[in-house]
Design a protein around this nucleic acid. Structure first.
Length: 218
DNA sequence: CCAGACGTTGTT
DNA sequence: GTCTGG
DNA sequence: CCAGACGTTGTT
DNA sequence: GTCTGG
């Protein structure tokens, strides 16, 4: 799955990688947790825009913000049918920008966290959905991250992983007028096209109050 | 019909 | 044990 | 994902 | 808003 991730890549590299003309102001992040603002890329008419939205999807019909805490991930196998995700899957798809994510593996009584990242530490796009909730003023925009089975590189740590999209799929994934559910579903598969590293890190990352570079250290 | 949920993961 | 907050 | 709360009353 | 359970 994906319950914590990093974004340490400088803005100019992100703008080049995701073909956006501008980025919102945000600091380098070593420990992004649910309810935090995350950087997403989405369609904006014929263009793309990068914006910050809250992680944990709050459906437009929700009565409470708190529902977002349970909507941090969406299973690729069922995302097109679930009431909370059906409409966003049809027309509010996005890229959730990251350059690493964390998984925990039980080792006896302990849980060992791992940082999973590309061997070149390049940023990547996790498949996401977003929504807008008008129960607050101003409205709250939020997102979820789609999960799938793990790939060969990460299977030993965990049996699920976020969907990492192939860059060639970005245009259709982001196009709200693209409604070919079968072809969309075909994008939601374990990523085997990147070279992945799986590195153990300190349990310092466990506490969301810890936000510094120590999170990615052994 | 109305009421109530709407989610994933891991562990037992 | 289970839910909420981060 | 993990950490931390989980409750009410009355007083400051 | 929409689906499921009763």
């Amino acid at each position: 799955m994906c319950g914590r991730f990093t974004l340490r890549t400088p803005p100019d590299v992100l703008m080049e990688a995701f073909d956006v003309a501008a980025l919102p102001e945000f600091p380098l992040r070593y420990n992004i947790a649910p309810t935090h603002d995350v950087l997403i890329v989405r369609a904006n008419g014929p263009d793309r825009e990068a914006v910050l939205v809250r992680w944990g999807l709050i459906p437009f019909w929700a009565k409470e913000v708190s529902i977002g805490s349970r909507m941090i991930n969406a299973r690729s196998e069922s995302v097109s049918e679930k009431p909370a995700f059906r409409v966003p899957f049809q027309k509010r798809r996005c890229l959730v920008v990251a350059d690493g994510y964390y998984e925990w593996r039980a080792e006896g009584a302990r849980k060992q966290p791992f940082l999973i990242h590309g061997d070149d530490d390049r940023p990547f796009a996790m498949a996401g959905l977003w929504d807008r909730w008008t129960g607050s003023e101003p409205p709250t925009e939020s997102c979820t991250i789609i999960t799938t089975d793990s790939n060969a590189a990460t299977r030993a740590v965990h049996d699920r992983m976020p969907v990492i999209l192939d860059a060639r799929d970005y245009p259709r994934w982001l196009d709200p007028d693209f409604r070919d559910t079968e072809r969309l579903a075909a994008m939601l598969i374990p990523n085997e096209s990147m070279a992945w590293r799986v590195d153990p890190v300190s349990s310092y990352v466990n506490n969301v109050r810890n936000q510094g570079p120590r999170c990615v250290e052994p």
